[in-house]
């Protein structure tokens, strides 16, 4: 089977560099093009690509990339507010899409993205790599094998060091702060493990770690899933800038027969010089995210993480912001 010819569309989100590395390494992918309007980011991406391969097309305007017939699928890592428009453009150019989280700013946008991709006959995936972290796979395997029995509650964190800048902290381009950016991974894990959709959320949030920001940087959420199952998420960007890690993604699941806990950042060694850093030795979850997307598209089936998974994240974000505004639990549009 010929490889899937893929391209990277926008490097505004730094995850795109890791996705590009994965695409360049995967045997079932041929990385054919990249696009970014910013010359610095474009140059950085080009330098990365050159380490692996020559002959990759470099575009300033992403429309030029979408016009190329040798591109079958794109990975979009633009500022959040552009996900909707770029996904529609890509789908209408007959490209499969893997879109960075959060899928969109509004649930209506996310639904339109799903609808247009279906109409155009292309697959839409949401870039939730945490499902592909080895520790999460191991947890999933054990939970499905019944080792902890039936799931009773889920508690998750997705912290980040307080260091974000640029479009991430510009509300009109990001759509918000840690609630927008950091609940979707943990929420997706809760949905995936429990097999239940979120139906209600209560959230608190504030701008405290860096009061000068125009977006919230700390938050806590209690989410009710179908059947009354409770999940909690702490998505705060509240780790000190000199913390040993970039952040964390942790999940603790209580079941009728036991408890299982995982931390995707825990596979690391500590290196101390003038500072202490944790150096990860875990396998790249981004690699397996891209592998699953490419294999799925080649096999003609949806990827493991679909547009609907992204849409549920966006719907929960919307309800969380409403809860923060009203101080009340809010229903999540299902």
């Amino acid at each position: 089977m010929p490889p899937l010819r893929m391209a990277a569309l926008d490097y505004s989100h730094g995850h795109q560099y890791s996705y590009t590395r994965a695409m360049l390494q995967l045997p079932m992918v041929e990385f054919v093009a990249l696009a970014d309007a910013d010359p610095d980011r474009r140059g950085q991406a080009e330098a990365l690509v050159r380490q692996f391969k020559a002959g990759v097309a470099i575009c300033e305007d992403y429309h030029d990339l979408l016009a190329r017939e040798d591109v079958e699928a794109v990975v979009i890592c633009s500022p959040n507010a552009d996900h909707h428009r770029m996904t529609l453009d890509a789908a209408q150019a007959d490209k499969h899409v893997l879109c960075e989280k959060p899928l969109a700013i509004t649930t209506a946008q996310a639904e339109e993205m799903i609808h247009v991709c279906e109409e155009e006959g292309v697959f839409l995936g949401t870039a939730y790599p945490c499902r592909f972290a080895p520790v999460i796979w191991e947890m999933k395997h054990r939970v499905e094998a019944g080792e902890i029995g039936q799931i009773l509650s889920l508690s998750a964190t997705n912290h980040l060091c307080s260091m974000l800048s640029g479009w991430f902290v510009e509300p009109e381009r990001s759509g918000g702060g840690c609630i927008r950016d950091h609940i979707v991974y943990a929420l997706d894990l809760c949905r995936w493990f429990s097999g239940r959709e979120p139906v209600e959320v209560y959230a608190e949030a504030a701008t405290l770690a860096r009061p000068e920001l125009a977006v919230e940087d700390v938050g806590m959420l209690v989410i009710t899933f179908e059947g009354g199952l409770i999940g909690t998420i702490d998505p705060s960007w509240n780790r000190p800038p000199n913390w040993t890690r970039w952040g964390d993604v942790t999940l603790r699941i209580l079941g009728t027969e036991g408890v299982i806990e995982g931390d995707i950042t825990a596979q690391a060694i500590s290196c101390t010089t003038d500072t202490t850093r944790w150096l990860s030795y875990g396998e790249s979850m981004d690699y397996y995210l891209l592998k699953n997307f490419a294999e799925s598209v080649l096999a003609g089936r949806p990827p493991l993480v679909t547009g609907w998974d992204g849409r549920m994240g966006v719907a929960t974000i919307e309800a969380a912001y409403e809860s923060i505004r009203t101080h009340r639990p809010m229903p999540i549009a299902g």
């Binding site: 009773l152 509650s153 209560y202 504030a206 209690v222 409770i230 909690t232 009728t256």
Partner: peptide, 30 residues
Amino acid sequence: MVQERALRRGRPDTLFAVGRFKGGAIFYLE
């Protein structure tokens, strides 16, 4: 804001709470 659940013992045995101090900081209690 508090949610109690009777997960394993026939009466509420688990509590999740999220809240805010008057000073502005937020908290989570499980």
